[in-house]
Every structure is written in C-alpha cells, then in structure tokens.
Design a protein around this nucleic acid. Sequence first.
DNA 1: ACACGATTACACAATATAGTGTAATCGTGT
DNA 2: ACACGATTACACTATATTGTGTAATCGTGT
Lengths: 124, 124
Amino acid sequence: MSKTKPTPGLRERPLLSPIQAGGLAAVFKVLANDTRLRLLHALVRAGELCVSDLAATLAMKPQAVSNQLQRLLDLGILACRRDGNNMHYQVVDCCVKGLLEQGWCLMESADGRGGCSPRFGDCE
Amino acid sequence: MSKTKPTPGLRERPLLSPIQAGGLAAVFKVLANDTRLRLLHALVRAGELCVSDLAATLAMKPQAVSNQLQRLLDLGILACRRDGNNMHYQVVDCCVKGLLEQGWCLMESADGRGGCSPRFGDCE
DNA sequence: ACACGATTACACAATATAGTGTAATCGTGT
DNA sequence: ACACGATTACACTATATTGTGTAATCGTGT
C-alpha cells in the first residue's frame, strides 16, 4: 500500500513537532465550528453565494457570517469576487471537500458506530 | 448495505442542519488540538502505546495525556487494552488517518499556498 | 454630492477549552 | 494486607472563541 502515492505515508513521517501540530490544529480548528461547516457546505452545493444569501440560508446575521467567511478566506479555503454591492464567495481549496467527506464518515462511525464505509480508509 | 456510489455526493446532500453541523463540528473539534494531533500521530506510527510512553514522547504530564486520550476514546477513535499497570492505546477508527492526511494537505496549501498535491482531491 | 444597501471592522460578553494540582482508583509484587 | 507505580477523575485558572451591537467602508443609483 505504500508503493504508490495515494498514501503519502503518515506512518513514515517523523513525529509531528509542536509547531507542525499547531499548524495542523489550526486547519481543523477552522472546521471545528458548525457555522463554518454549514457555510462551507452551502458553498459546495451552490458553487458561489454572496454574504446575504448565506446569511439567509443559515438564518444568521450578515455580520456573523462575514466574520466566519473571513476566517475561511484567511486560510485560503475560499475566494471572493465582488459583484456590485455583493461579495460572492466560493470554495477554492481542493482538500476541503475530501476533509468534509471524511469528517462525515468519522461522525457517523463515532455516532452510530460502524457507519464508516470501508472505501474511505483501509480499516486494517 | 450502502454499496452505492464512490462519491457520497457532498454536493447532492441536503444542507447540513444545525444539529448535523454540530456533530460534524464535534468531530473536527477533537482534531483541533495540537496535543491530540501529536497523540494520534504517535499512535499511528507506533501502532500501540501506553500513557506513560505517550507522555514521555510528547514531553507532557500523564494526566494531560490521559485527559486527551479519554476524549479520543469517547469519539471511538481509539481503543485501549490493559496490560498490567499500563493501558495501551491504539487507533481503531479507519477515517482518522485519511483525515490527518487531508488536513496535512490543507495545512500546506494554506501555509505555502499551493502545496496541495492534486491527487488528494479533484481540484475542479 | 447624497442616500441607500451590502459588507466589514472592532470591542464586548458569554461560553468553551486545555493543562495543572490534588486525590482517588486499579493492578502488581511482597 | 500493604506499599508502590500507573492511570484516571475532578475542580480550578488562564486563555481562546463565538455571536452581538455599533460604526466604518464600499459600490450603486439618483
């Protein structure tokens, strides 16, 4: 399994240094919030949405939405484009969708125990 | 039962409800911490380790390590086995490794911008 | 220039989180 | 039974995070 590249070898890598771990934690931290998750999912589904649409979709105030959007923007997960008064956001990071999928899997396996379909990882 | 499509269709799924999003956020929350990340990585590398080994590896106190281990245990990510006075922990969730890999990818792309290798996701 | 709507910036209050210190629990060996 | 080491439980403190409220900024249309 470690001949081809599909597994970059998490197991072979040297132990995470506290700094690396901090960086990795920062990535997960940005996903560790239901608002940002719903924002991300709404954007994945719609492709592109503006702040007010997002606010309406999530039934939240534009300020709160914008705040979280900035967070996602800082990490390079989103990109935005201005159209008149509106700012349209979209997901540009290619890893985030997979992350969401896998997270979903983990959630189901954590919740119902065994909801993880085998193709996601090599359950040894 | 779910021998269906290779892509669960993040895009086709109905919008995340606040409850679902909360559950998913809980999953990411558990990974949103450098200590737990280092714990996980150490366990993936070694296969199985006991609390004191882990504490020594991370240069942390056993109590702190144990606390985080419980968290990982609650989510069903780890399993433990007693061997005399020692408790050995190991990763049993099949999704978590993939999650770590993808998170690493996202970290690199967020950090250096463009470090995400294309094989991870279908950058469309 | 001006008003208006959309978005963002920022300080603030409420809540959650992590590691520490102390004490309890569990298994082993004598 | 007893002492010891390993692990865990729990209260506590410092810190971080979220949504709110207010105000500033930006683009459009008149």
